[in-house]
Amino acid sequence: MDHPEPKVAETELPEPTAQQQPREAAVFERPGAEVFKTKNVSIYYGSFRAVTDVSLDIYEHEITAFIGPSGCGKTTVLRTLNRMNDLVTGARVEGDVEYRGASLYAKGVSPIAVRRRIGMVFQKPNPFPKSIYDNVAYGPRVNGEHKKSRLDEIVERSLRHAVLWDEVKDRLHKSGLGLSGGQAQRLCIARTLAVEPDVVLMDEPCSALDPIATGRIENLLREIKSRYTIVIVTHNMQQATRVSDRTAFYSVLRDDKNDTRTGVLVEYGPTRQIFEDPRDSRTQAYVTGRMG
């Protein structure tokens, strides 16, 4: 890869060239407001500590990628950001997870209200067994919108944002289960966008899709990031370099003496720095493919 290098504080980099993209420069020099601030977050499933001491900030209108080997806890961290882990019996969070200045796990915080602001797209496309229209209208409806004309508008806008409108506009009232994998995943994205969330969390959204469908979703992410903050878990490092502004690399810490393992955040920074000038040898090994 011979992309121009943006400026990163405290690292020696080649001279920036004239082609440097202002968007990326802006990311590194003046990040937007912090949407999430996590400090020393450890996550347990029963007595198993899945993730230990994760501290990172996620910035507004950026795409943040979580990468790392299986079992490193990246999905677990993602799922604590909208309290999805509440649904798992025995799941417990220690440490601070702050969302726009408010503690997500404070007493009196309703996970339902949290999830209405912080949406999630899953690994496997999971359209509801309903029509395409009703899939997209589901979120607005549970949020109290029942006016037909408003719903029509939301459905069309969300499907357009998810670049699915042209493919489905003539069969809005057919089942969402009849779509191809890529279309179904875009339907799920449309469904998430329909509630106008602040943040969209994505858990390996392309792992079940072919390269063409993946390319569509990645374009879509770049298009919507001016309106949303996106956190994406991915196994695909190329994907992280293609779409994300910042990357967090997680790894598994094994304790052979006690036969335990836990996920840790190894390194977090601008995506280009993580991939081209990683500071931690583990990151280096992972991004250069020397470690699984």
Partner: peptide, 23 residues
């Protein structure tokens, strides 16, 4: 995963049952 899909949109348990479990 379908249940989680509904919860991720801010559905309550009852709304999830009506919207996902029932259909």
């Amino acid at each position: 995963i379908d249940r989680e899909g509904a919860y991720a949109l801010g559905a309550t348990r009852w709304e999830m049952i009506r919207g996902v479990v029932w259909p």
